[in-house]
Design a protein around this nucleic acid. Sequence first.
DNA 1: ATATAAAAAGACAAAATTGTCTTTTATCTT
DNA 2: AAGATAAAAGACAATTTTGTCTTTTTATAT
Lengths: 153, 153
Amino acid sequence: MGMLLSKSCVYGLRASLYLAARGNETYIPIREMSEKLEISFHFLTKILQQLTSAGLLESYKGPNGGVRTTRSGDEITLLEIVEAIDGDYLLTECALGLPGCGIMKPCPLHEKWAETRDGIRTMLEFTTLHELSKKGKEFDLRITAEGGFEGLS
Amino acid sequence: MGMLLSKSCVYGLRASLYLAARGNETYIPIREMSEKLEISFHFLTKILQQLTSAGLLESYKGPNGGVRTTRSGDEITLLEIVEAIDGDYLLTECALGLPGCGIMKPCPLHEKWAETRDGIRTMLEFTTLHELSKKGKEFDLRITAEGGFEGLS
DNA sequence: ATATAAAAAGACAAAATTGTCTTTTATCTT
DNA sequence: AAGATAAAAGACAATTTTGTCTTTTTATAT
């Protein structure tokens, strides 16, 4: 349908934002997150595994276990999350889908698309989880269909 | 996977560009296009039907039939094609997938994403098929994996 | 009239994405 | 040691997207 980020990626962003808002002192159970964020538990588990193996999150098994951000949220950018889940296809591929489209033998849209793409990349690269969670708490913005940041500590 | 435009949409763009490069004097058979552009004939047929019912292309059955652009290519923008195939989801929806995210009750990414999205929209809105086909012919750019505009008349 | 060309329509199949469920492994608590 | 908690792993199902094939409709040409 055309949607920039996959659903997995969107879920991953929401969950990461949630974790950043909770700080990285304690581990947060995925079950809790899945309920708060209204995302299927098992599906979310898989997504977070991708972020864990990318080194953005760390997990711990057993009681008091869960996941948390490795670094403090101000050091994690949206770009890292997007790349970990959706790869860099969006940020490198030709808008007309031509393999190997580049400076050497571009498609007619190459230049314009490269600019637009850079706009997307820049936005993702210079937006941190910390920044968003701070803004979210300050104005009690939405992190789920209905609810905001208010209860998140 | 995250890819801005669906494959259908990318095919639709390539085909529209092909048609624009051929002018709108004669009807071009879809079979011919599908071969030149290396896109599955039946799949392409469906995609072009969407563009036809959106009023961007017109078709004619029987011998010497095919499809052509309704208006001359300088009046058709990429935005029209993208909206006809992928809808305006990409250009309106929340980056975090929250339904009804807007000024009234935004998500933390709302503002930044709105800007980025406008960048995409503007690029699509102010790029015409004519502009691209002109550029494509002038520099023999790529419209297929291997081939360029050279043979397109 | 008949044959041919080509889009339209619709049934069907394959692949990718999204979502669910069960089992295994690691860790903690008692 | 036994039970409880929670992530990891993997099998399976539903849905969406992508792709293929056949039949129908409309027009042309002989």
